[in-house]
């Protein structure tokens, strides 16, 4: 194994430091005794903010809403994303490439555009803001994540597996259940986790589609403006990092060794 040149190693270390030092500061100031302004180094360390955060009902409400939105958006994305992937990967039809582009577009589109578009659509259709308006907003980009994972796996799965199943007497549903779904399972799990993480920390689309409701990221944004009990925000941020990082890590490990072509047993 070749060692990278010194300059490159310094640059990489600097890059990593730049990306991760702010995250470390979030954790550090969750323990500070100074609640109004941040100074370095913190004047003292305490665990009281964890207790404070634990006893704040507004945090629990925001967390509950965020979890419910993320779970629902992910569930919708799993169903629709898988169906779309199956259609695109397995068959050829008129306008297939356009459909592919339309499915992927929401993740390339700036969140602010998606947000404004949904907000105008809701007001035009006289739909009041609710839990479901947030869910629909999040589902637009969650579907993309699931779709991308599923379509990549389907392309790597040998088409003759499906034919073999049908040949042996399984109808479409049995083939899906016994052959296609097991092939897709890790890809769907990974896609679902990524979708959950994306939804859980989404701010931009949510501000346009939430009305009076507060998801956890929105709560944090509004909390930063207030000068009291600022470390509570850091406590919550640290929790959010944990909640979103673990699924992404799991998703990475689940899809990492899926690179061989399933069913090409030669």
């Amino acid at each position: 194994m070749n060692r990278a040149p010194l300059g490159l190693r310094i640059a990489a270390a600097a890059g990593l430091l730049f990306l991760h030092l702010p995250l470390a500061l979030i954790f550090l100031y969750a323990f500070t005794t100074e609640e109004r302004s941040y100074q370095f180094p913190p004047p003292g360390y305490t665990l009281e903010w964890f207790a404070v955060a634990w006893n704040r009902p507004d945090i629990w409400a925001a967390l509950g809403l965020s979890v419910r939105v993320a779970a629902t958006a992910t569930a919708i994305a799993l169903v629709l994303g898988t169906l779309a992937a199956a259609a695109v990967a397995r068959s050829r039809f008129f306008g297939r490439d356009s459909v592919t582009l339309l499915i992927i577009l929401p993740i390339a589109l700036p969140g602010i555009v998606t947000g404004i578009a949904l907000r105008s659509a809701y007001s035009l259709a006289d739909i009041p803001f609710s839990f479901w308006t947030i869910v629909v907003g999040h589902a637009t980009f969650c579907i993309v994540v699931v779709y991308n994972n599923a379509v990549a796996r389907l392309r790597r799965t040998s088409g003759s597996l499906v034919e073999a199943s049908m040949d042996l007497g399984a109808d479409g549903f049995q083939t899906f259940r016994h052959v296609v779904l097991p092939q897709l399972s890790t890809a769907l799990l990974a896609g679902g986790m990524l979708a959950f993480a994306l939804s859980f920390d989404e701010v931009i689309v949510t501000t346009f589609t939430a009305g009076q409701q507060t998801t956890l990221p929105i709560w944090m944004l509004s909390e930063l403006i207030r000068p009291r009990q600022r470390p509570v925000t850091n406590v919550v941020a640290a929790m959010v990092i944990a909640v979103t990082f673990l699924p992404i890590l799991a998703a990475y490990y689940l899809t990492r060794d899926g690179d061989r072509i399933a069913g090409q047993g030669k």
Binding site: S158, S160, L161, E163, A164, S165, D167, H178, V179, P182, Q183, A262, G263, Q264, G265, K266
Partner: peptide, 10 residues
């Protein structure tokens, strides 16, 4: 059918 790539369920 015996498939060319055998198509065994992995």
């Amino acid at each position: 059918t015996v498939f060319q790539d055998y198509a065994l369920f992995p």
